[in-house]
């Protein structure tokens, strides 16, 4: 019905979507800038892949274990570093991401090192990917509109004020950090069982940067923006093959332009809603009618 190629792209979009949602919550809603999410993705990917290939554990528990492993590591890291402010937090995530990558390269007997880990069974089908993405969107949406989510937005807007009305800033940041890492780990597990091959280079610094770029293009502080952003960033190079070489160049330009001209990104702080779109068109129609 749907060709293999299209299926492959849809799966890729879904996986990217899950991890971008995590970055969106962290960067867009908590204003924590992280370079470590590719690292968490690799933890989820390797953990689940090792479980299914080496220990023969079924797919579902392996994915869960991948997400939990990433969440656990982020909990430890967050406990140590989230009290640090601004730049310092970013720097630790950067150091962490690179450390994880170098470690996976180094422990060759377990991970296959730089040569990669091959022979992972293909479990991420179209249905699994789409279901996962929908579930991730639902979870992220619920999280953002929960008490904790509102706390995060308060921290984003004014940390000191949030603290003074009784929001436990460090705790909230930690929850946001762990949540985003778990999404990353989850996406990583799906990624491993889609590609059937893992290598530490896949989770390098530019990969983390690309995730942040996607969130910025979609709009800091908009979940639907992040969904649109990851659609755009994943589909553009697929639709225009010749564009693939230029894509990072243009993404970089887009980010710089957006930060300068329209820092709120494609969607701004708003969520996409059908009723607003209808209202917009109705207003247009009225205007058009009045002129005619």
């Amino acid at each position: 019905m749907i060709s293999d190629y299209t299926q492959g792209i849809i799966i890729l979009v879904c996986i990217n979507l899950i991890i971008v949602l995590g970055v969106s919550i962290l960067t867009g809603f908590t204003r924590l800038f992280s370079f470590g999410n590719a690292g968490f993705m690799s933890i989820g990917a390797y953990a689940s892949a090792l479980l299914t290939t080496r220990l023969g554990i079924p797919f579902l528990p392996a994915v869960l274990a991948g997400a939990l492993a990433a969440g656990f590591v982020s909990f430890l890291l967050g406990s140590l570093t989230l009290k640090l402010k601004g730049d310092y937090f970013l720097i630790t995530t950067l150091g962490f991401g690179e450390c994880v990558r170098v470690l996976f390269n180094y422990i060759e007997p377990v991970t296959g090192g730089a040569k990669g880990l091959a022979g992972i069974p293909k479990h991420t089908t179209l249905a699994v990917a789409v279901f996962s993405a929908l579930l991730a969107i639902a979870l992220a949406w619920t999280f953002i509109h929960s008490r904790y989510g509102r706390g995060l937005t308060a921290i984003r807007e004014q940390e000191l004020a949030a603290e003074s009305v009784g929001i436990d800033v460090t705790k909230h940041k930690k929850i946001s950090f762990v949540f985003s890492a778990m999404l990353a780990g989850w996406a990583g597990a799906l990624y491993a069982h889609n590609l059937m091959f893992l290598s530490p280079v896949m989770f390098n610094l530019p990969r983390s940067a690309e995730l942040t770029i996607t969130v910025v293009i979609g709009g800091l502080g908009s979940l639907t923006g992040s969904v649109l952003g990851s659609l755009l960033i994943t589909l553009l190079p697929e639709m225009f093959r010749s564009f693939a070489n230029y894509r990072m160049f243009f993404y970089g330009l887009a980010v710089v332009a957006i930060i300068i001209i329209r820092p709120e990104g494609l969607c701004g702080y708003r969520e996409f809603s059908l009723s607003r779109l209808l209202k917009f068109f109705r207003r247009k129609a009225v205007k058009g009618g009045g002129a005619g």
């Binding site: 601004g86 942040t212 970089g252 980010v255």
Partner: peptide, 18 residues
């Protein structure tokens, strides 16, 4: 916010490198 300076700088480095 200062974070935007960092994001812009990250974008710039992507632009130059590519």
């Amino acid at each position: 916010p200062t974070m935007f300076l960092m994001i812009a700088a990250m974008g710039l480095s992507t632009v130059f490198q590519n």
